[in-house]
């Protein structure tokens, strides 16, 4: 059985993913993270298709979404999440390298919940990811139908 994770990190760059996981580990959130490598994988996971067809019910508490990815890009993933009634309540946080006006506009138009530009300074970056993770996975009250903290394996 595929494990249920509260944080879905969609990031094609393994180094960014590693840095993000490094940051989340500070709040003991690293075990809560499922790292997927592109948009297609993310959609398969959310829609329970392909290799994820056997996944149990429950949506992640937050999706941390990179924009520039091969195959299906972040904006398309965002569009499909927000247009599907069973998925549209999932909080989606865009985490991207650059603040481009058109990306920002498109993301908010599609209903993004937060838009974070990855800071250049390592320390700032770590802080930002920590804060995002802590806010959405711990502080924020997730919508109904979300995997709860007690559901996670090992507790």
């Amino acid at each position: 059985m595929l494990s249920l994770k509260r944080i879905l990190l969609v990031e094609d760059n393994p180094r960014d993913a590693e840095l993000a996981l490094h940051a989340l580990a500070a709040h003991n959130l690293a075990n809560e993270v499922l790292h997927l490598h592109d948009g297609a994988e993310a959609l398969d996971y959310l829609y329970r298709r392909g290799e994820f067809s056997g996944r149990v019910n429950g949506n992640p508490a937050v999706v941390l979404l990179d924009l520039k990815m091969p195959k299906v890009d972040g904006l398309e993933v965002l569009r499909q999440i927000k247009s599907e009634p069973t998925l549209s309540t999932i909080p989606v946080v865009v985490m991207t390298s650059s603040r481009e006006d058109r990306d920002l506009q498109a993301a908010y138009r599609l209903g993004v919940n937060a838009y974070v530009v990855k800071p250049m300074k390592f320390k700032d970056f770590i802080d930002a990811v920590k804060q995002v993770g802590a806010f959405w996975a711990i502080l924020n009250e997730a919508p109904p139908g979300t995997v709860s903290r007690d559901d996670r394996p090992g507790t």
Binding site: L19, S98, R99, F122
Partner: peptide, 21 residues
């Protein structure tokens, strides 16, 4: 400029990030 903003920044961040780690 789009790819500069995305593709050039990421490796820079990584250089700094890994150096600090």
């Amino acid at each position: 400029s789009y790819s500069v903003s995305h593709d050039l920044r990421a490796p820079l961040r990584h250089v700094q990030g890994y150096a600090e780690m």
